[in-house]
Design a protein around this nucleic acid. Structure first.
Lengths: 121, 121
DNA sequence: GAGTATGAAAACGGGACCGTAACGATTGCG
DNA sequence: CGCAATCGTTACGGTCCCGTTTTCATACTC
């Protein structure tokens, strides 16, 4: 089955999950950085700076800086591509996987807490 | 029925919706500002600076600045409380309501696009 | 081997946000 | 009336992100 959300459910979930996530990760992770992180962990590798920039429609320095930030947090890891040493392959880390998993749990929890849609009573 | 999400569904939805939202609103709206906006439009009024700050666990200047930004965008409106002129009541606007509605549509659309969970497929 | 093309990072200037602290305006109390 | 408390805003110093441009290393082509 696909997921069928009512407007108040969708917005309520979004609000609750965003709020919970802010508490979890703090204000130090931009929406863009979050998207980049999720992309790395949800989409099949390999991931390169150029590829991510094109896929997410941002400039390359945005990716570079996001990798700096998240690399310092231990959420991702950079590895030189030995086939073509100009490329950088972005690798996942155990810490990052746990982090993403935590976000998933959080959304699931918020979804479960959702009240029925007000339209139906 | 409550909403029962599988991990890959939850993260996929989060990723897709965040990405779509970034394209919609641009990088000019912080996650905090978004939470504030949703709170104003989803929770029953009246909303004050102090109330929002306490409820969302941020400092008052964060609310003030968010109201500046979103006020310039026409998404919210400030009105002095005539009962107690120290207070500021945050009012909704037509433009803001449409904006929030758009976000809801976007999430619903992304939820509908979601594939079945990989565990069972 | 020289010259061009490509990938990522660094440099630069500008702008926004953050938390703390200080500031006016308003209220309530004695 | 004077004084403390409350509410929202502004000021300040710092940090981070952004897009553009430049730099550096590597790969490809002739």
């Amino acid at each position: 089955m696909s997921i069928d959300l009512k407007p108040s459910q969708a917005l309520g979930l979004w609000h609750a999950a965003t709020l919970a996530q802010l508490e979890l990760v703090g204000p130090d992770l931009t929406m863009r950085q979050l998207v980049i992180l999720l992309h790395i962990y949800l989409k099949p590798p390999p991931h390169t700076v150029r590829g991510l920039a094109a896929r997410l429609d941002v400039t390359k320095p945005v990716i570079t800086r996001a990798l700096d930030t998240m690399g310092n947090m231990g959420l991702v890891r950079r590895v030189r591509d030995e086939r073509d040493r100009r490329n950088v392959i972005i690798k996942r880390t155990v810490e990052g996987a746990l982090f993403v998993e935590k976000i998933g749990d959080l959304i699931i929890k918020e979804a479960a807490k959702l009240p029925r849609d007000g339209v139906t009573g």
